[in-house]
Structures are given as structure tokens and as C-alpha cells.
């Protein structure tokens, strides 16, 4: 009976993942490997960025009049924020669908999301990345890594660490069913600062980690060390987010850009 419970939990989490995220690895790989009916529009310089803003990016975000005359770096930063906010919304709905999450203390649900969403965002972002760039605007655009690197400091430092993480993470060859459990494990984490009912969360975390381990054994029978490798990735993601939060703080201090109120809430007093 325990094994069948675990399989049910894995299936429920996978279904919640497919239902709540508009992009997933299977979709992204279809586009990145050139198998989609329409190839993405490639953004590789200022000119193609402007063209994209009039087409694919314009559909994704309302590139308001206030931004039109701002420099490219600020406009790209704005787009990144819009994508993050949308993913936080999706992650919240996903979390609510993880059995047991909604029964947790409401303050603890807030804390788990506050600390977990960026780790989850960067883990899932890897699905939309290859060594040359990143899918944007629901897969209708592709922005090159070189172009992002060529932006002025500090914006040029925003994405490169995520690419470096993604290349190592993608070499593990996880599929969406593995990623669903991995993202659930990121969110339901018992050692976030300020949690009230740690035991309750640890119990939930343990059941998800157990399911993840079992699922990896059956889904990747030839890769014995995949589970410990993934646990290490949880540590790497925490470091990636700490560095990201510092960079955002620097941008907020030195640049004349606004930060979305939802992201402000999340970053405030984070680390």
C-alpha cells in the first residue's frame, strides 16, 4: 500500500506541474531542437531586440510608453521581471495542488514560497536554455547568451550564472515528471528561516523526497547516482539565488528602475 501511495503522490504532483506551468521541458525541447512548426524569433542584437518588442515580446508584456525611451538593459530587465512574476503565480498554484501544502500554516506557506520560488524558477529555466541562449515569450523568441553577456554591467551579469548552472543541470537529462517532483521538493523545504511548524513541513518534505528517490530509480535505472546529484543541485540553487538577490539589490540601489511589488516582497529581508 505504501508503494501505491507514493506512486499516486508522484502522479498528482506531475499532473499539477503539467496543468500549472505554461512552459515545460518537453515543449521547450521541441522548439530548441527545431521541431516546432514555427521557429522562434532570434534576438541577438539591439536591432532584433527592437523588432521583437514590436512583435513577440510586445504580446507577452505591455511594454508601456514609460519604457519605450529607456535603454535596452532596462527594458530587458523589465521583461525578466514580468516573466518571474508570472512564474511565481504559476508556482503558487502548483504549490497549492501539492497534497498537504494547503493544510500548512498560512504563514509557513508564505515563507516556503518566499524562499523557494527563485530556486524553482532557475531550476525550470534550465529547460528553456541551451548553450547558446534562452527561449522567451512562451517560446516565440530566443535571446542569445552572447547578446545578454554583451549588455552593460550589472545587467550583463544577470543571466550568465544561470546558463552555467543550466548546462550542468541539463546534463542530468531529467524529464518533466522528474522536474515536477524536484520543484515540489524545493518548495516544501523544512529549513527555511522563520518557519513556525517545522515538523509538519519536514514530514511533507520527507514524503516528497522519498517519492523523488523512488521515481528516479524507476525512470532512470541506469543512473544510480542521480538522486544524490539532485540533492547537491538543491545546494547549488540556494547559492545561485543568494547571488541573484545581491545583484537585484545592487540594481535597485544604483539603477533607475522599478521592481515589481511582488518581487519586492520576496526579496525583502530574504538573506
Amino acid at each position: 500500500p505504501q508503494l501505491s501511495d507514493q506512486k499516486t503522490l508522484a502522479r498528482q504532483i506531475y499532473e499539477a506541474y503539467l496543468k500549472n506551468f505554461n512552459m515545460n521541458k518537453a515543449k521547450a525541447r521541441t522548439i530548441l531542437t527545431g521541431k516546432a512548426s514555427t521557429p522562434p524569433f532570434v534576438i541577438h542584437d539591439m536591432e532584433t531586440l527592437q523588432l521583437a518588442e514590436q512583435t513577440v515580446l510586445g504580446k507577452m508584456v505591455d511594454t508601456a510608453a514609460a519604457l519605450r525611451d529607456r535603454e535596452a538593459e532596462v527594458r530587458i530587465f523589465h521583461c525578466c521581471q514580468c516573466t518571474s512574476v508570472e512564474t511565481v503565480t504559476e508556482l503558487t498554484e502548483f504549490a497549492k495542488s501539492v497534497p498537504g501544502f494547503s493544510n500548512l500554516d498560512l504563514n509557513d506557506q508564505v515563507t516556503l514560497l518566499k524562499y523557494g520560488v527563485h530556486e524553482a524558477i532557475f531550476a525550470m529555466l534550465a529547460s528553456s536554455m541551451n548553450k547558446d541562449g534562452l527561449l522567451v515569450a512562451y517560446g516565440s523568441g530566443f535571446i542569445t547568451r552572447e547578446f545578454l553577456k554583451s549588455l552593460r554591467r550589472p545587467f550583463s551579469e544577470m543571466m550568465e550564472p544561470k546558463f552555467q548552472f543550466a548546462m550542468k543541470f541539463n546534463s542530468l537529462e531529467l524529464d518533466d515528471s522528474d522536474l515536477a517532483l524536484f520543484v515540489a521538493a524545493i518548495i516544501c523545504c523544512g529549513d527555511r528561516p522563520g518557519l513556525v511548524n517545522v515538523t509538519h513541513i519536514e514530514r511533507l518534505q520527507e514524503s516528497i523526497i522519498q517519492v523523488l528517490q523512488l521515481h528516479l530509480l524507476t525512470n532512470h535505472p541506469d543512473n544510480t547516482f542521480l538522486f544524490p546529484k539532485l540533492l547537491q543541485k538543491l545546494v547549488d540553487l540556494r547559492q545561485l539565488v543568494t547571488e541573484h538577490a545581491l545583484l537585484v539589490q545592487e540594481i535597485k540601489k544604483t539603477e533607475d528602475t522599478s521592481l515589481h511589488p511582488l518581487l519586492q516582497e520576496i526579496y525583502k529581508d530574504m538573506y
Binding site: 512574476v85 498554484e93 508564505v110 514560497l113 515589481h260 525583502k268
Partner: peptide
């Protein structure tokens, strides 16, 4: 905590849009 995270709290309670910049 709820006071400092009004939008997150709102998202958890219902499916409202977090709004635009």
C-alpha cells in the same frame, strides 16, 4: 509576515493577478 507579503498571501488565498509594474 502576512502584512509584509500581501501579494503572496493574496495569491495563496485566491487566484488573483499580481498586477503589472
Amino acid at each position: 509576515l502576512k502584512e509584509k507579503h500581501k501579494i503572496l498571501h493574496q495569491l495563496l488565498q485566491n487566484s488573483t493577478s499580481p498586477g503589472h509594474l
